[in-house]
């Protein structure tokens, strides 16, 4: 389990993490989403033991990660801004990681060569961004990690390679119980792979559920009232209300059943519950947190 309790981090006068409470169960794929500047990358760096928190705790498997080489040996990461040694090729990096990570598996590295069609002898600096990311995946997965922490992992990869990478990760989750934490803005893709989601904003986790719970606890209703519905919708707690003709679309933070019951006192011609995508959940949650889409005329 990955767990942070009241994690606080300041950079000078700026509070980047304002008490992050996060729990990632073992063997799950956790999607960490949030607007730009929410603190996702800072949080990830704490999980990797790069930053030391000013307050609170960061634990993986019940152990503090800071200055814990034995624990860090079980963590592999693909950061948003990865680094390779100058002039190094994949083979050089492989040898380096092999000497650093006790769990590095040569056989796995050889098997993954089939998945990643890259020239091992070519300097990594000469690769495109997508190819470098593939190399990063290749090396990270070869370390046989128990925890895989990814920041924008598939950004820059072509669709085929995206599927390949997700497939490899999911097989690790299934076969080895690897715990994966993914931070990404590509919510449509995350929705396919994640079973837990944490929404982060302004240095805090504002919402954390399993994806199914999240989808169950937020509902989109399309409603047509018999009479004018303006007065009605204003009295209903909704994250978002929009109208097209007589059809009102309500996003409400409750289950579908509760929402329908809530509308029962009112005369409605039609009430229909529609499934919400993760992207919609995110947008409307952020809108509730004063980070919505602004109607600006330019």
């Amino acid at each position: 389990m990955i767990e942070t309790v009241n994690l606080i981090k300041d950079f000078g006068d700026f509070r980047a993490l304002a008490g992050v409470d996060m729990t990632v169960p073992d063997g799950c794929v956790y999607g960490l989403i949030g607007p730009n500047g929410a603190g996702k990358t800072t949080l990830i760096r704490h999980l990797l033991g790069i930053y030391r928190q000013d307050d609170g705790s960061v634990k993986l498997g019940g152990e503090d990660v800071w200055e814990n080489p034995a624990l860090k040996a079980r963590i592999a990461s693909i950061p948003d801004d990865w680094y390779f040694f100058p002039q190094a090729n994949i083979r050089d990096m492989k040898e380096f990681y092999k000497g650093i990570y006790p769990g590095f598996a040569e056989e796995r590295y050889m098997k993954l060569r089939e998945a990643f069609d890259l020239d091992e002898r070519r300097p990594l600096r000469g690769f495109s961004k997508g190819m470098q990311k593939q190399a990063a995946f290749w090396l990270a997965l070869s370390c046989m990690p128990d925890y895989l922490i990814l920041d924008e992992p598939v950004d820059g990869l072509d669709p085929v390679m995206r599927r390949q990478v997700w497939s490899l990760m999911m097989s690790d989750v299934e076969e080895r119980g690897t715990t994966v934490l993914v931070s990404s803005h590509n919510l449509r893709e995350l929705e396919d792979v994640c079973d837990h989601v944490g929404i982060m904003n302004k240095g805090r986790i504002v919402l954390e559920h399993s994806l199914s719970e999240m989808q169950d606890n937020t509902v989109k209703l399309q409603v047509v009232f018999e009479e004018d519905g303006e007065g009605i919708v204003s009295s209903i707690p909704a994250l978002h209300v929009s109208r097209l003709g007589r059809v009102y679309t309500l996003i409400m933070k409750m289950s579908a059943q509760e929402a329908v019951e809530r509308l029962a006192p009112y005369k409605t011609l039609m009430v229909e519950a529609l499934p919400l995508t993760l992207e919609e959940i995110f947008i409307y949650e952020m809108g509730g947190s004063d980070y919505g889409i602004k109607d600006i005329l330019v």
Binding site: I50, P69, A70, K72, A73, I75, P79, W82, Y83, P102
Partner: peptide, 16 residues
């Protein structure tokens, strides 16, 4: 900065 992040993410203690 990037190299620092890579080095400090490795399973090596600062003493080492």
């Amino acid at each position: 900065p990037r190299r620092t992040l890579m080095m400090h993410a490795l399973p090596l203690s600062r003493n080492c």
